[in-house]
Amino acid sequence: MEITISKYIKIENNTIWLNGEKVFSAGPDTDFGTFMKVLYRRYAVKYLKFFKMDNLSKLGFLASEILLAGQGLVKHYPNDKIGVFLSNSNSTLDIDQQYYDLIKDSDNYFPSPALFVYTLPNIMIGEICIKNKFRGESATFIMKEYDPNITVDYIKNLFLQNKIKVCIAGFVDYTKDNYDAFLYLAENTELLNGIAHNAENINNLYYQRE
């Protein structure tokens, strides 16, 4: 079996690289919230639930939307064979802090259910799956820094067991000071110019800059 990476995306520093090529950049002074709105409109996402998401989910969701544009995954694969596997360093620390700030005053205690639902990092995967109707295996890995060595064998085994036929995987991290999204599409097919799915190649793509 040959698992290959057919497409990948990196979003960092208000810039998007698709398959290693810079495709869009906003000014360095653009704040994260504005950058997300700019991408939402630029890529004509049309999904109002996006505005209710926390920052981590917005980042992962938009990265997946741009990565999957034109792919038609659910037309080519059964829904339950499409997996999503994301890694992350800071879990949901940003929204955890927001939620804590909201409830810390016992005299003004109005917990927000809409914030609370985002205090689990796998909700980001849920948002991607709901939008795209993916129903396959999924997992979120929390690690100090992105290390594809940890996830590559896990994903490979799921392919070997025929649990998945395609997956989106990568790293999506958000803190109020920094953010980073790297997603790739891996398929069990020998594509022309496909990149073999191994930790070395994934690391090269992750750190790749034009």
Binding site: F110, P111, P113, A114
Partner: peptide, 13 residues
């Protein structure tokens, strides 16, 4: 359903 819960919070707050 989450929006419903938010509306309940809004009414109370």
């Amino acid at each position: 359903s989450i929006d419903a819960l938010e509306l309940i919070v809004l009414l109370e707050k």
